[in-house]
């Protein structure tokens, strides 16, 4: 099942990349996709039936819109800190408790945190995510957990878990 899903995905990627439906091109892409799926399917998702649930795609679009908005805000925030003459930075590494369970959802949360204003994820040890924050706003763990992960956690839970 995993082999089939990865084969379809890599074959679609090949078709998008070349945009050519001649027979020779299709055979080349199919051979490359078979080799890819044989080599790498054991690192792919366990439960591939999640690709067939349409409500996840709706939440994925909502998540993309939120992510792009946060990206733009992050860039304006960096611009303010870099161009300000006194450079208002107060960096530190804080520890945030994770609510998500599956590995892929945790990866997506770490990626999203890297693109949000002022934060970059460092490591995951057990159930804790370590985040480098360019301006530590509060000392209270519940408060900064809400500020860092609260924006994305519910969308990622609905999309990827």
């Amino acid at each position: 099942m995993r082999y089939l899903a990865l084969f379809i995905l890599s074959f679609l990627f090949w078709l998008l990349l070349t945009l050519d439906v001649s027979v020779a091109n299709l055979i080349t892409g199919a051979v490359a996709a078979v080799i890819t799926s044989l080599l790498f399917a054991r690192y792919f998702f366990d439960r591939v039936y999640k690709f067939l649930q349409p409500v996840r795609y709706f939440w994925f679009v909502v998540y993309l819109v939120v992510l792009i908005w946060e990206c733009i805000k992050a860039n304006l925030d960096v611009a303010y800190r870099v161009l300000h003459p006194a450079m208002p930075i107060k960096p530190g590494i804080v520890k945030v408790k994770l609510e998500l369970q599956s590995d892929f959802a945790r990866t997506m949360l770490a990626n999203s945190i890297t693109m949000t204003p002022g934060t970059i994820s460092v490591d995951i040890i057990d159930d804790y995510l370590y985040v480098h924050w360019i301006y530590v706003r509060s000392e209270d763990p519940a408060e900064y957990s809400r500020q860092i992960t609260g924006r994305f956690e519910k969308f990622i839970k609905k999309t990827f878990e």
């Binding site: 960096v78 870099v82 960096p91």
Partner: peptide, 24 residues
């Protein structure tokens, strides 16, 4: 802006913040 941050900010982690966000 990312390149200004890469040159101006004080240590590795802050430079990485500015460079990654703005560059990407």
């Amino acid at each position: 802006i990312g390149c200004i941050g890469l040159i101006r900010l004080p240590d590795v982690y802050n430079r990485l913040q500015s460079a990654t966000k703005c560059g990407t």
